[in-house]
Every structure is written in structure tokens, then in C-alpha cells.
Simulated assay, not measured.
Amino acid sequence: MCKKGGELNESANTKTLKPTMMDVAARADVSQATVSLILNGSPGAKFSQATRKKVFDAAQELGYRLVQRGPWQGTPSTNLVAFVVDEVVSDPWMALAFEGARQRALERGVSLMLSVCGSGFLEDDDLRQKYEQMQVIGYICGTILTREITPSPFLMKSPTVLVNCYDRKRRLPSVLPGDLEGGRTATQCLINSGRTRIGFINGQDGIDATSDRLRGYRQALASNDLTFDPDLVYGGNWEPQSGYDGTMKLLGLRTPPDAIFCANDMMAIGCYEALKSSGLRIPEDIAVVGFDNREIAQYMRPPLTTLVLPHYEIGATAVDQLLDIAAGLTPRHSQLKVECELIERDSV
């Protein structure tokens, strides 16, 4: 039987196994992607000092030594990766993913070319032929909303990694945010502060982030013997107005909440306005947690406790995945989840 850390029980017929990155991740209670990004010193990767210390301490305790990924060893004509997204304007997520991928690609001696293709990936014959003529290493395909896609036959024949989207049959590897665990972390943060009646303002139906964050919320309640009350859940649309409306509805309950988890920071802005207009103090009367760690969160009054949506890290991880595949290596996991780290500020 294996022990944590990759060591076998000592006997005459067993040997000590070298610790792996997965062992470090298990010891530090983080994802493999987080371990890789921290130990590789990726510029721009946003992790707290506490998380970095956990990873370095776990690696040292296990005696793990990082095997550095070297520069891409392809031919001079194959040092380009196509980064294809559906859109980059409405939210910053794909721009962040591209920046994370670009930085990691530079470290590996590879260039990235960004293309915005709307809802269909490489359905434009001219664009596809252009990439084929360039002899690209492969494709990273990303969506602004976390969702399922149906890969085209062209992508199925090419080295491809999906970012913020996935193929339900898992024929292509994907890298996604850990929304379920993020929802659980946000709710647990409020429970740890002594709150027992926690409202949840969620995003619109039909989106993976909406269902996953709700599942995480419910799991945290169940783990702490708190009863799920559907009256405490309000379906918003990610916009500040729905945060305001949802908060006013929650405050109108016979027993209003003592904490509110907003499924994104934009709805948390509306939540703040509703609480302040009702004469309630944050966090003395009601604690609030958001999600996404948008730039504005640190400037809210009080500064908002929230979770990072780790698209920079997701982009960097996707580059390593793609280059491994192009080198003939089989991904250890068909779907990687990058955890959404809690950023503790003054709203709890």
C-alpha cells in the first residue's frame, strides 16, 4: 500500500519511489497546475505567499526535485502555437489566459498567434489553411464562458488543448478553473467566520460556472451540518443590478441572511449598494464574499474578500500540455482543474 508522498511500506521486496509533482500537490493540498506554476517561477502567476510556502515546504519535505521543461525542440519552422478564442472583448478572461500562455511560451522558446473566431473554432477555411501553411505546433482553443464544445474533425487530428472549455467525451485535454471547489471555499470562509445563514446570489442558468459554484456552496453547507434553504438562493445574471435585486430579496426574508456569497464581483458591487442603502454594515451586520478577483474588488469599501479566477495560470498550463502532446507524451490527466485561490480582505 502506498503512503502519501510516493513511498511504499518498507519490506524486503519494496523500494522507495521518487516523489512526483502529484505527491507535492497532495501534500500541499493544491492542484498539480499550481505546483508546476509556483516551482517553475512563472511570472505573473498570482498566488499568495501562504500558498507558495505550502508548495515549497511540501516539495522540501518530500525531497521532490523539479525537472525543468526545456525549450521546445521542434524545427525552426514549427515554433508557433495558434491560440484561438471565441471572444476577448466582453470580459478579461481570455486576454489573461493568452498572457499566461504567451509568457510560458516565451520561456519555452515558442511564439503564439492570437485569433478571434466567434462561436466556431477554425471553421474559417482561409484561417485554417493559413495555420496549416505555417506548420503550427498545435492549437489552444479557449472560450470566454466555461462550457462544453464539440471539437471539429480538424482539431481532433491536430495537437490541441482546450482552455476554459471541454469535450464531454474527453477526446481532447482541457484546463479549467476549479469552480466547484471555489464555491465550497467561498462558503466555508463565511462559515469559519461564524455565519450560519448564508445567502447565495448566483449567475444565470445554463452556464457551467453557475452550476459548479452552486454545488460547491451546497457541499460546504452539508459538510458543516447546515441545512440548504432554496429561499436563500437567488438567480442573477452576473451584473451589478442583479446583485442589488438579489440582496434586497434576501433581506426581505422572514429570517434574512447574516452573510452573502456572490458568484462574481460585479454582483457583489450591487450587493454592497443594497446593504448600505438598507443601513447595514459590512461585515459587522452581513459578511460578503465575491468571485473573480476583478481589479475593482480591492478598491471597494470595505475591500472585498473574493476568489481568483485563474485564467493566467490556465493559459500557462495549457502551453506545457500542448508541447508535451506535440513531443509525443500522453497527458496524465484529460482534464486539469486549477484552483481558485481565496483572497482575504475586509468584507468578512
Rank of each mutant, 00 (worst) to 15 (best):
T150P: 02
Q129V: 00
G138D: 02
R147C: 09
T78F: 01
D124S: 12
G118A: 05
P153M: 04
L112C: 07
G120R: 13
S90L: 14
Q73F: 04
S111F: 13
F98W: 11
S115N: 07
S90E: 10
F83V: 00
M156Y: 08
G74C: 13
Q73A: 12
A97D: 01
L127W: 04
Y139I: 12
Y131G: 01
P153S: 03
L114I: 09
T143C: 13
G120V: 10
T160P: 12
W93S: 10
Q73S: 13
P153Q: 02
E99C: 06
I140M: 13
D125Q: 14
Q129E: 14
V161I: 13
I149S: 01
S77R: 11
F121V: 07
L145R: 14
S158F: 07
K130P: 00
W93P: 09
S158A: 14
V85Y: 04
L106V: 15
E123W: 04
N79C: 10
A105I: 01
L106P: 03
T150L: 11
D124E: 15
Q133N: 09
E99H: 09
Q103W: 06
M113C: 02
L112I: 00
M134R: 14
E132R: 10
E107A: 12
A105M: 00
A105G: 01
Y131F: 15
I137T: 05
W93L: 15
R128K: 15
G100R: 04
D124K: 06
V110C: 07
E87W: 04
E148D: 10
K130R: 10
A95K: 11
L112A: 01
V81F: 03
C117Y: 02
C141S: 09
L145Y: 11
M113N: 06
V136W: 05
V88Y: 03
E132T: 12
K157I: 01
P151V: 07
A82V: 04
Q135G: 04
A101E: 03
V81H: 04
L106K: 13
D126R: 14
G120P: 00
P151S: 06
W93F: 15
S158E: 13
D91I: 05
I144D: 09
L145K: 13
A82R: 00
L106A: 14
A95N: 15
D91N: 15
Q73T: 08
G138E: 08
D124C: 09
S77A: 15
Y131K: 03
I137L: 11
S152N: 10
R128C: 04
L112W: 05
T143V: 02
T75M: 08
N79H: 10
A105F: 02
I140G: 03
M94P: 09
L127N: 06
F154I: 01
I137K: 10
T160E: 03
V89H: 13
F98A: 03
R147H: 06
T146R: 11
L112E: 03
Q135A: 12
M134H: 12
D86I: 00
L106W: 09
D125H: 08
R147K: 15
V88E: 08
